[in-house]
Design a protein around this nucleic acid. Structure first.
Lengths: 153, 153
DNA sequence: TATTGTTATACTCTATAACTATA
DNA sequence: TATAGTTATAGAGTATAACAATA
C-alpha cells in the first residue's frame, strides 16, 4: 500500500475529460486534425496534401503571381515553399515562368494538366465540404462556424 | 512578351482569397495555429506547451492513472508520451509511482509543486479563454463554437 | 500471448541563416 | 542595400517497429 493508494484510480472507468474538452484550443486542435485526416483520406487517390490543394486553388484564382506572393498569402515561409512548388512542377501541374521586368522572380501558372487536375480536386473537396456541412447540421451552421473561426484568427 | 502576359497579374493588388478562406479545413487550421501561438505567448514565463498543459489538467482530474491511459485520452502515442512525462518529472511537477498489482505500469501523480504550478497555469489559461471569448463576442458564441467543433470531430 | 513502458528511427511541418542573382 | 528564390539545417510533432519486464 503506497502513500497514494487512497487517490489511486486505476479502474476501467473512463477518465474525466470535462476540463480538457472545454478548452477552446484543445477542441480546435482536435477538430482540425480530424478534418485534415478526412482530407488525406478523400485525396488519397489524387495524392494531394492540404497545403498543395490550397496552393493550386490560390494559383488558379491569381495566375502569374510571384512565388513569394502565393507563399505569403498562405503564411508559408518562402524557403519551405520551394519544395512544395518543386513537387507540383515535377508532376506537371504548374509551371514557373520568367517575369519580364524582374528576372529574380518566378511567376506561377497552372498548366492545362494542372487545370484539369484541379477540377477533379475541387469535386473531391466539394464532397468533403458536403460531408462536413452534414455533420454540422446545415449550411447555416457552417457559416456560423466560419464566422466564429474568422473572429478568432 | 510571353504567352501568359494577358493573364499575368504581378501588380501590388491583394490576392483573391475567397476560395481558400471559404474552406472549413483551412479556416480551422488558421484559427488553431492562431490560438496555439497565443497559448505559447501567454505561457512563455511558465515555459509550458499546450500538450503539457492538457496532460497536467487531465492528471489532476484523474490522479493515479497509468501513463498509457492519460496518453490515450489525449490521442498521444505512448512512445511519444515518454519524453513528455520525462520533462514534467524532471521539473518536479509530476511523479511516476509503482502500481501495486501491475508492476509493468506507472501511475501518474501531480507533486505538491506540480499542483501549485497548475494553479498558476490555470489562471493564465483562464486569461487566454477570456481573451478568446471576448474575440468571439461572448460566452454564448463560445458555447456555439465548442458545440460545432464537437460535431466535426 | 498480450500489455506497459521504453528506445530508436523516420517522416512531415516549420523556422532561421546564409548564399546567388538580380534590383 | 534590399529582394526573390534557393539551400542547408535544426527543431518540433507524429508514426511505427522492436525490445525487456511483466501479466
Amino acid at each position: 500500500m503506497n502513500e497514494h493508494e487512497a487517490l489511486t484510480n486505476t479502474s476501467d472507468e473512463n477518465l474525466r475529460t470535462e476540463a480538457t474538452l472545454g478548452m477552446i484550443g484543445y477542441r480546435l486542435r482536435r477538430a482540425q486534425l480530424s478534418v485534415f485526416q478526412q482530407f488525406l483520406s478523400f485525396f488519397e487517390t489524387l495524392n494531394l496534401r492540404p497545403a498543395e490543394y490550397s496552393v493550386l486553388v490560390l494559383m488558379e484564382e491569381n495566375p502569374g503571381r510571384k512565388q513569394s506572393e502565393i507563399a505569403a498569402a498562405l503564411s508559408i515561409k518562402r524557403a519551405n515553399f520551394v519544395a512544395l512548388v518543386d513537387g507540383l512542377e515535377k508532376r506537371g501541374l504548374i509551371s514557373r515562368e520568367v517575369v519580364a521586368n524582374d528576372r529574380r522572380a518566378n511567376a506561377l501558372y497552372l498548366t492545362e494538366q494542372g487545370t484539369r487536375f484541379l477540377a477533379d480536386a475541387r469535386d473531391v473537396h466539394a464532397k468533403l465540404e458536403d460531408d462536413l456541412v452534414a455533420k454540422l447540421g446545415g449550411t447555416e451552421q457552417r457559416d456560423t462556424l466560419l464566422s466564429l473561426l474568422k473572429k478568432i484568427t
